[in-house]
Computed example of a mutant assay.
Amino acid sequence: MKAEKLLSSLCYFSIFFAPFLFPIIIYVLTYGIVRHHAGKSLWIHLVPYLSFFIGIGVLVLNGGNQMSSLIIICIFTVIGVYYLILNFVRGIKVLIVN
């Protein structure tokens, strides 16, 4: 049970060292609750990047207005920081709970 907790937690903490590679490897090689956490962490790792590309698309379509560009950049920075903190909290939660 301890190894399952550690691997599940490492999937969330992998945002700091291998955001996509580690959860994908764990997802393919494991089963059960570890696989569930690996898939969940992979999606949480993807959201900031998806929002970044959506933000870039909006900036391109916007035409470069300075005020709206600043607002868009601030919104997507907040999204990125939120998901970074979310990964950290979920990694600790998996280690401590149960």
Rank of each mutant, 00 (worst) to 15 (best):
82 Y>P: 02
98 N>H: 07
12 Y>N: 09
84 L>F: 10
71 I>F: 09
93 K>L: 11
97 V>P: 02
88 F>L: 15
86 L>E: 14
59 L>I: 09
93 K>S: 15
58 V>Y: 12
9 S>A: 13
27 Y>W: 10
18 A>P: 04
22 F>S: 08
25 I>A: 15
45 H>L: 05
62 N>T: 07
20 F>N: 08
97 V>W: 05
57 G>R: 07
73 I>H: 04
69 S>F: 01
38 A>S: 06
79 I>R: 04
37 H>K: 10
94 V>I: 15
24 I>V: 14
21 L>F: 08
62 N>C: 11
87 N>T: 03
51 S>G: 06
35 R>V: 01
57 G>A: 11
98 N>F: 04
67 M>S: 09
62 N>H: 07
54 I>V: 15
28 V>L: 14
63 G>M: 07
40 K>E: 08
49 Y>A: 14
5 K>W: 00
11 C>M: 02
88 F>R: 08
68 S>L: 13
72 I>H: 02
89 V>F: 05
40 K>T: 06
39 G>S: 05
62 N>G: 14
45 H>I: 01
66 Q>F: 02
23 P>Q: 02
51 S>R: 03
54 I>D: 06
60 V>W: 11
34 V>H: 01
59 L>T: 07
5 K>H: 03
89 V>Q: 13
35 R>I: 00
27 Y>T: 05
77 T>E: 13
82 Y>F: 15
80 G>I: 01
30 T>E: 12
3 A>P: 05
25 I>F: 08
50 L>N: 02
12 Y>T: 03
45 H>S: 11
16 F>K: 11
14 S>Y: 01
13 F>S: 03
71 I>H: 02
61 L>E: 10
14 S>I: 02
78 V>E: 11
69 S>A: 14
98 N>I: 06
70 L>D: 10
41 S>K: 04
57 G>L: 07
43 W>R: 14
53 F>H: 05
1 M>D: 12
37 H>Q: 09
93 K>I: 04
48 P>D: 01
87 N>Q: 10
4 E>Q: 11
34 V>N: 02
83 Y>E: 03
53 F>S: 07
32 G>Q: 03
23 P>G: 03
33 I>K: 09
6 L>I: 13
92 I>G: 05
65 N>R: 12
35 R>Y: 00
56 I>D: 10
26 I>K: 05
9 S>Y: 00
16 F>Q: 10
2 K>A: 12
57 G>W: 01
95 L>R: 01
57 G>C: 06
64 G>P: 06
29 L>D: 06
75 I>P: 03
81 V>A: 15
64 G>M: 07
75 I>S: 13
77 T>N: 10
76 F>V: 14
37 H>F: 05
70 L>Q: 12
76 F>T: 12
50 L>Q: 05
86 L>C: 05
29 L>V: 08
84 L>R: 05
32 G>W: 00
64 G>K: 06
88 F>Y: 11
63 G>W: 02
54 I>Q: 08
38 A>V: 00
36 H>N: 09
66 Q>E: 13
77 T>G: 15
57 G>M: 05
